[in-house]
Nucleic acid binder design. Structure first.
Length: 497
RNA sequence: GGCGCAUUCGUCUAGUGGUUAGGACGCAAGGUUCUCAACCUUGAAACAGGGGUUCAAUUCCCCUAUGCGCUACCA
């Protein structure tokens, strides 16, 4: 049978890191076995679903490169079918009408109220004590005909258990005594999650459900629905969760933007690097290496390599340098400095365009210059943003001077105020503007002034790039070019700051 | 409260009934250097606790602790 998997987010916020990894694993699994990767938007909770969320999720997926193989399914479009299915189960006696009045939510937090109620009921709760469970068909029909509102509940058998072999967690069993007669249809006719998921998964021909471990107990309920419908359930595999530092829940409300995929896209991460990072959060190929291309991930991916324990996404919101996981930052830097230059170039171009630093010549006449420059400066960059930030002076005259750099490398050596313009004069007469002649000239200049090479070069670095750190100055002179080098060495702007 | 899942360096993880418990990030020290990275070398850093089983347990079993999940006419 051809494998068909789906990623099924509910559009109640942007694509967060846990969902992104679920999408990744579904994608890798599908590609590994040559199956299809589908996308379903679970927007049945009209009150909380927004189009904006849907758009944001789609954007996140697009950035990561996970395009669905078939048309996107919107769950709300199938509400009628879900309803029909519930009614069919009702007709067949596999479900029943519950005429209990719907409880209005109290003032308290819904979640807290549920836990409180559960605590009071303890372990003694009889899941089959609903008085309408065994109501006669005639009476049930009559009350419904009279217009009395009802919810539809699945009639779970008294005795027995559900079981399934989870692709990650192994054999899972649950006694019926632990499963309530779950509501399929609300009293307003609205189909609920478990029903909708099962119906759609059947409809879409899903063979493997790979989702977060938070659905582990739902799976038993869903299997009951499959059975009631006379369908064979798909295979299931549940993924460990991604937690915040300290092992706490990673939440949009508390942790904010840091959990959103678009944050990483906008912060200058490469999708390839972030995918790679995500893949290693809860999965391993069992080897001592960290860098994997998408193709390699697809080739090596297997459910067996997925861990059972939750992983912590490490970050420190009080530390600017550690705003997100160290390893993610490292991996992005690793990609930036080691990936094939021709693959990096388009990303840099996009960044420069968005910062208005792009010139069309970079694509034709100055293409070679552009490539060499990118190759030179990428060595110490962490994100694509650095190309328009730290690397700005290579692409524009409009760059800022780092005050610390001025103090440390310029003002500490007041003689540089005379020396650097003098060096510029010497450069004027240099015919061959390339590394070796520049080196010889500077080194003779330093001997003459009886100063260290570094003093002059570091001073020049501040005037030429505005930074205290950067690539080799000799290479920088060459790349920035003779005219601009001379001009910047003579500039007084930095000195006056 | 009930049910379920989990527990190897700070973090991501490898691994085995007998290992100096390996790698990566981060951290520290040193080397290199025009700066900073990169790179190289080195270092600190872990089997949650208690019982079993066994000649031998980090590995198998049980208990405890801790964390997480579920416990809705949410998804």
């Amino acid at each position: 049978m051809n494998v068909r998997v789906r990623f099924a987010p509910s559009p109640t916020g942007y694509l967060h890191i846990g969902s992104a990894r679920t999408a990744l694993f579904n994608y890798l699994y599908a590609r590994h076995v040559g199956g299809k990767f589908l996308l379903r938007i679970e927007d049945t909770d009209l009150a909380r679903s927004t189009e904006e969320s849907t758009r944001s999720i789609l954007e996140g997926l697009e950035w990561l490169g996970f395009q669905p193989d078939e048309e996107i399914v919107f769950q709300s479009d199938n509400a009628d079918k879900h309803r029909q299915t519930a009614l069919k189960l009702l007709e067949e006696g596999k479900a029943y009408r519950d005429f209990t009045k719907k409880e209005e939510p109290g003032d308290k937090d819904i979640k807290a109220a549920i836990v409180e109620k559960a605590r009071q009921q303890g372990g003694d709760k009889n899941m089959r004590d609903n008085p309408f469970r065994d109501l006669s068909g005639e009476e049930s029909d009559a009350r419904a005909a009279a217009g009395e509102p009802f919810a539809v509940r699945l009639k779970v058998a008294e005795e027995g258990q559900t079981s399934f072999e989870d692709g990650v967690y192994g054999m899972q069993e649950r006694s019926f005594a632990e499963i309530e007669d779950l509501v399929l249809l609300r009293s307003d006719g609205h189909p609920l999650y478990n029903l909708a998921v099962v119906c759609d998964d059947i409809e879409m021909g899903i063979t493997d459900v790979i989702r977060g471990q938070d659905h582990l107990t739902n799976t038993h309920k869903q299997i009951l629905i499959y059975r009631a419908l006379g369908k064979e359930p798909p295979r299931f595999a549940h993924l460990p969760l991604i937690l915040a530092p300290g092992g706490k829940k990673l939440s949009k409300r508390i942790h904010g933007e840091i959990v959103s995929m678009t944050t990483y896209r906008d912060a200058g991460f490469l999708a390839a690097a972030f995918r790679n990072f995500l893949a290693l959060l809860g999965w391993s190929a069992g080897e001592e290496r960290e860098i994997y291309s998408l193709e390699e991930l697809i080739e090596k991916f297997s459910l067996e390599g997925i861990h059972r324990n939750n992983a912590i996404f490490n970050f420190d919101s009080n530390n600017e340098r550690r705003w997100t996981d160290d390893k993610a930052i490292w991996m992005n830097a690793e990609y930036i400095r080691t990936m094939p230059l021709d693959q990096l170039i388009p990303h840099v171009a996009r960044e420069l365009k968005s910062e208005k630093l792009w010139r069309d010549e970079y694509e034709d006449d100055d293409r070679e210059w552009f490539e060499t420059t990118v190759d030179l400066i990428r060595e110490r960059f962490y994100t694509l943003k650095d190309f328009s930030g730290q690397g700005r002076a290579f692409f524009s005259e409009d760059f800022d001077f780092d005050p610390k750099a001025i103090d440390k490398n310029l003002k500490k050596h007041p003689q540089l105020k005379e020396w650097l313009p003098e060096l510029a004069d010497r450069f004027e007469s240099l015919e061959n503007w390339s590394h070796d002649p520049i080196h010889d000239l500077v080194s003779r200049f330093c001997e003459e002034k009886e100063t260290k090479f570094g003093v002059v070069l570091n001073g020049a670095r501040v005037l030429l790039t505005g930074q205290a750190v950067g690539p080799s100055m000799l290479a920088a002179f060459e790349q920035i070019g003779k005219d601009k080098t001379i001009m910047r060495l003579k500039s007084r702007i930095a000195w006056n700051q």
